[in-house]
Amino acid sequence: MCGLLGLICATETDAAAARDAVAAALRCQRHRGPDETDTWADAEVVYGFNRLGFIDLEHSHQPLVWGPPEAPTRYTLNFNGEIYNYLELRAELAEKFGTKFNTDGDGESVVAAYHHLGADAVTKLRGMFAFMIWDAQDKVVFGARDPFGIKPLFYSSGPGGLAFSSEKKSLLELSGTLGVSEELDRTALQHYLVLQYVPEPESLHTGIRRVESGTSFRVVPGGQVEFTRYFHPQFTAKPVDGEAEAEALYERIADVMRDSVSKHMISDPDVTVGAFLSGGIDSTAIAALAKERNPSLIAFTTGFEREGYSEVDVAAESAAAIGVKHVVRTVSADEMMEALPLIVWYLDDPVA
Rank of each mutant, 00 (worst) to 15 (best):
L4N: 14
L5A: 00
G6I: 12
A10H: 01
E12P: 09
E12A: 12
T13Q: 09
D14S: 04
D14W: 01
A16Q: 06
A18V: 08
R19A: 04
A21W: 02
A23I: 00
A24R: 11
L26F: 07
C28M: 15
C28T: 15
C28L: 15
P34Q: 08
P34T: 07
P34W: 03
E36T: 08
T37A: 07
D38V: 13
T39H: 07
T39I: 12
W40Q: 00
A41H: 10
D42W: 12
A43G: 14
R51K: 10
E58D: 15
H59V: 05
H59I: 04
H61Y: 03
H61L: 11
Q62M: 01
P69S: 06
P69Y: 00
E70C: 10
T73N: 10
R74K: 12
L77P: 06
F79V: 14
G81S: 12
E82C: 14
I83G: 05
Y84P: 02
N85H: 08
N85K: 07
R90N: 03
A94P: 07
K96S: 10
T99W: 02
F101N: 04
T103I: 00
D104K: 15
G105D: 11
A113Q: 01
L117I: 05
G118Q: 07
T123W: 03
K124P: 05
K124S: 12
R126E: 11
G127H: 05
G127L: 06
A136M: 04
Q137M: 03
D138C: 09
V140A: 02
V140H: 03
V141E: 02
R145K: 13
R145D: 05
P147V: 01
K151D: 03
S156C: 11
A163V: 12
K168Q: 13
L174F: 03
S175D: 11
G176S: 06
L178N: 08
E183I: 07
T187H: 04
Q196G: 06
P201Y: 12
R209M: 04
R210M: 09
S213N: 08
S216Q: 13
F217W: 11
V220P: 10
Q224W: 11
T228N: 09
V240N: 02
G242P: 00
G242C: 03
A244T: 13
E245K: 10
A248P: 01
L249D: 05
A254S: 06
V256R: 15
V256H: 08
R258W: 00
V261W: 08
K263M: 10
M265K: 02
P269K: 00
D270E: 15
T272G: 09
V273I: 15
S278W: 13
G279P: 07
G280Q: 13
I281R: 07
I286R: 02
I286Y: 00
A287R: 00
A287N: 05
A288I: 08
A288P: 00
A290C: 02
K291G: 09
E292D: 14
S296G: 12
A299R: 08
F304T: 05
V314E: 14
V314F: 06
A316P: 06
E317D: 12
S318A: 15
S318K: 03
A319L: 12
A321Y: 09
I322H: 01
I322T: 00
G323N: 13
G323A: 14
V328D: 07
V328Y: 13
R329V: 05
T330R: 15
A333Y: 01
D334S: 01
M337A: 04
I343Y: 07
W345P: 02
L347K: 14
L347G: 07
D349R: 15
